[in-house]
Design a protein around this nucleic acid. Structure first.
Length: 267
DNA sequence: CTTGGGACCTGGCTGC
DNA sequence: TGCAGCCAGGTCCCAA
């Protein structure tokens, strides 16, 4: 699933291909990608605009177009492919750039979304970027104190910290030695500090491996990411914990599958 | 206000 | 072997 490291990888790999280019055409094959907006209205707002910069906020990818912005979210199975094969499956829209390059929004489960809006006041309701300097252990601690919910659920709350999804929440909690069902407001200062550092380290490591291709995630080039090979608990139910050898368990937390080591992460 | 749970979506897997 | 039904999870929406 595209979480922060996957979207950041997509952003970095697309920058040299899109920044400075104009959108000269768009083929919308699946109207549900645009929500209630018609293809005509979407095209009118997008076409002939030049990409000034490509930004990531949380799991959102934002094409800044000078006064306007094209915003995308890939949800579960969305991806952007550069110059895809003619017979590529699950293509929902194709964007044509002035360079002649094509950018295909592919999305097997069709949950992804794309829309246009004003660039000055993006409507995204997101908490701090976990890799920004403004995000500190104290910021995390203060936010957790206001939430009487399982810490796993708090990490998935995009207003607490932006960009963490199911995989990296599990990895960060394992790295911090914290049980996923611990209440967020019960963490000590020390535990919050350790979790803060774990979140950043897990995300940075995954970006270094160009994201995790555990399901359908694929980079714009069509290559896979390799972050899944560094996972210690995520998607590893039934396997031995790399630290202590205890079998990794999987429990639902707020109806999200949650993998953890019952020995390294005690309540 | 907060928290919890269902809907959305489709391919792959489980079990009869 | 065939197929019904469940499961995956990010976000939105609604109910308690």
């Amino acid at each position: 699933m595209p979480e922060l490291p996957e979207v950041e990888t997509i952003r970095r790999e697309l920058v040299p291909w899109v920044v400075g280019q104009r959108f000269v055409g768009v083929d919308v094959l699946d109207l549900t990608l645009l929500g209630a907006v018609s293809a005509e209205e979407f095209s009118r707002a997008l076409l002939d605009r030049r990409v000034e910069s490509l930004e990531r906020r949380g799991k959102y990818l934002i094409f800044h177009l000078g006064g306007k912005a094209l915003v995308m979210h890939f949800r579960m199975t969305g991806a952007l492919l550069l110059n895809p094969e003619q017979n590529e499956r699950y293509v929902r829209a194709v964007f044509h750039l002035s360079s002649g390059a094509r950018l295909a929004f592919v999305d097997r489960r069709r949950l992804g979304v794309a829309w246009m809006e004003g660039a000055d006041a993006l409507s995204l309701k997101l908490g701090p970027e976990p890799l920004d300097d403004a995000f500190t252990a104290a910021v995390l601690m203060n936010s957790l104190k206001a939430h009487h919910i399982p810490i796993k659920a708090a990490l998935l709350d995009q207003t607490v910290v932006a960009g963490i999804g199911n995989m990296y929440a599990d990895e960060a909690l394992f790295a911090a030695g914290i049980h996923p069902l611990r209440m967020a407001d019960s963490l000590s200062d020390t535990e919050a500090q350790v979790l803060f550092e774990s979140v950043r380290r897990v995300l940075l490591t995954a970006i270094g491996s160009k994201g995790a291709s555990v399901d359908t995630y694929i980079r714009p080039s069509g290559q896979r990411g390799n972050a899944q090979s560094c996972f210690k608990v995520a998607h590893r139910r039934g396997e031995p914990c790399p630290t202590c050898g205890t079998i990794i368990e999987r429990v639902p937390v707020r109806s999200r599958g949650t993998c953890f080591c019952p020995r390294c992460q005690q309540c």
